[in-house]
Each structure stands twice: as structure tokens, then as C-alpha cells.
């Protein structure tokens, strides 16, 4: 934020619900009874929606963005293909979103989560917890190191498997921007078969969740890189808004 500007406080562009998944998506069976049937009530953003909590970089530990070691015994690393996931958090105006909190979670390289409700037979990795977090820099840039998660089966259809994916939770500058999504890997043959991806009907919106291999940022003899940019809602400039700041 430039020091001679007030932080922008305009309301957010309306969410493009055509690009977003519907609540009721029978291909993803759990959504059938967990989806509101009545229409959402539209409302203009008030202060309650355009504000949000502040997360400081000082809360982060040194290994928070390194899932390869942040749960591992000293000197050990998680088993799996070593990868870097990096990119920018942008808003719909194309500006980087600084100070955005990203929290990520994923299965281990065999497709197994470290969770009491997990039932898949694949082995746990004693050196892999599965969580990471970071906060974007002044340009909206972030970076993680991890191992590539495995595909896993889940009870939906009789033979449904999730493509390899990393879950992302994003906290931008306002509660209106709050978003949880998933990142997929370029070339994964399970992507077209995934009922959870099929909750999105816009193919461009699906493509935007697939991270390409990034050879330019791959570290030779060490770790491949995938680039994943995420877009949060943008906001209007305040100049002609029917809102007096300070009111």
C-alpha cells in the first residue's frame, strides 16, 4: 500500500455465480442434502463485508511453508516427489494481493491424509503432517515446498478417485473475499473424471485450477516447480461510490 493513499475501501464486484459451482450438484452426492434450496439473498457490501482481520508475517514459523520438513524428525524429510508450488494471489483488477494468508493441506505421496476420519489403506508417512501456510509478499507472491500428493479413492460413486490436489484456503483483505479452493496438476489423467471438479460447469474456470509445470523455476536435481495463481474478488474504486468514508 502506498503511504500517500488511504487503503481502498470500495465494495466488491458481485460474485460471478456462473463461474462458481452451484450448491446442489448431484454428481457430488454429499452436496444433495447440504445445499440450500432457497435463493441466496443479495445484499450490497456493508462495512461488515468489506473489512477483514489482519494477519501479520510475524506469526509465521520458519518451516510453516515447508511441508517437506515441518512435521519431519530432525534431518528427515517426507517421502515423495519433491515439488515447489508458487504463484501470485491477484484480485479481479489484476493487482497482487499482499498480506493474504494462505493455508494449505494435502494427502501424502500415497494419497493418505493424517486425520482420524481417514479410512484409505495407503500408508501414513511418519515425516509428513500435511499442513502449511504462508502470507503473500508486497506483490502478492507466495511459495511452498512440499511433496506431490497421491490420488485417492473416496466414497461417492462406486469407483471415484480424486486427482492429485492441494487444498487452499485464502484470506484476502475482506470477509467478502474469503475463498477455499483446490489446486490440480497439469496432465493428471484423473482430472476429467473428478465429480468434485465437475461441480464447476465452466471449463475455463476448471482450467484455471490446474497448475502447469514450471520448468523455469524447477531446481535442477532437487525439486520440480508448479505455478498456481489464484484470483480473489476485486473491488470498485471509491471515487464515485455512494458511500462517504468515515460514515
Amino acid at each position: 500500500m502506498k503511504s500517500n493513499q488511504k487503503p481502498v475501501s470500495g465494495s466488491y464486484f458481485p460474485r460471478d455465480r456462473v463461474r462458481q459451482p452451484d450448491a446442489y450438484t448431484p454428481c457430488y452426492k454429499t452436496s444433495v442434502v447440504r445445499s440450500p434450496h432457497k435463493a441466496l439473498i443479495s445484499m450490497n457490501n456493508t462495512l461488515s463485508e468489506i473489512t477483514g482481520p489482519v494477519f501479520g508475517h510475524s506469526m509465521l514459523g520458519d518451516l510453516d511453508n515447508d511441508m517437506m520438513t515441518n512435521y519431519a524428525a530432525p534431518g528427515e524429510t517426507a517421502i515423495g516427489q519433491r515439488i515447489i508450488v508458487h504463484g501470485r494471489v491477484l484480485d479481479e483488477n489484476g493487482n497482487g494481493v499482499p498480506d493474504c494468508l494462505l493455508e494449505v493441506w494435502q494427502a501424502n505421496s500415497g494419497g493418505r491424509y493424517r486425520h482420524a476420519k481417514e479410512t484409505y489403506v495407503a500408508a501414513l508417512d511418519a515425516n509428513f503432517g500435511g499442513c502449511g501456510r504462508c502470507i503473500t509478499d508486497d506483490n502478492g507472491y507466495y511459495i511452498f515446498r512440499t511433496i506431490k500428493p497421491g490420488a485417492y479413492p473416496w466414497p461417492n460413486g462406486p469407483n471415484d478417485w480424486r486427482p492429485a490436489h492441494i487444498h487452499f484456503s485464502l484470506f484476502g483483505h475482506a470477509f467478502a473475499q474469503r475463498l477455499i479452493t483446490q489446486m490440480y496438476f497439469e496432465g493428471d489423467p484423473m482430472i476429467p473424471h473428478c465429480p468434485i471438479l465437475r461441480t464447476i460447469t465452466d471449463q475455463n474456470a476448471i482450467n484455471d485450477l490446474i497448475a502447469p509445470i514450471d520448468l523455469a523455476n524447477t531446481i535442477p536435481m532437487d525439486a520440480r516447480a508448479y505455478k498456481f495463481d489464484i484470483v480473489l474478488r476485486g473491488r470498485r474504486s471509491t471515487m464515485f461510490e455512494n458511500r462517504m468514508e468515515g460514515n
Binding site: D16, Q20, Y28, W105, G130, L179, D208
Partner: peptide, 14 residues
């Protein structure tokens, strides 16, 4: 304009 990334379920392991 860019378009907001599509949401995906938080899933059981959020």
C-alpha cells in the same frame, strides 16, 4: 478483468 478462482469444497479434512 480477471475472474475469481472457482471455489471447491473444503472437504472432510479441512
Amino acid at each position: 478483468f480477471l475472474k475469481e478462482s472457482a471455489s471447491q469444497t473444503a472437504g472432510p479434512y479441512v
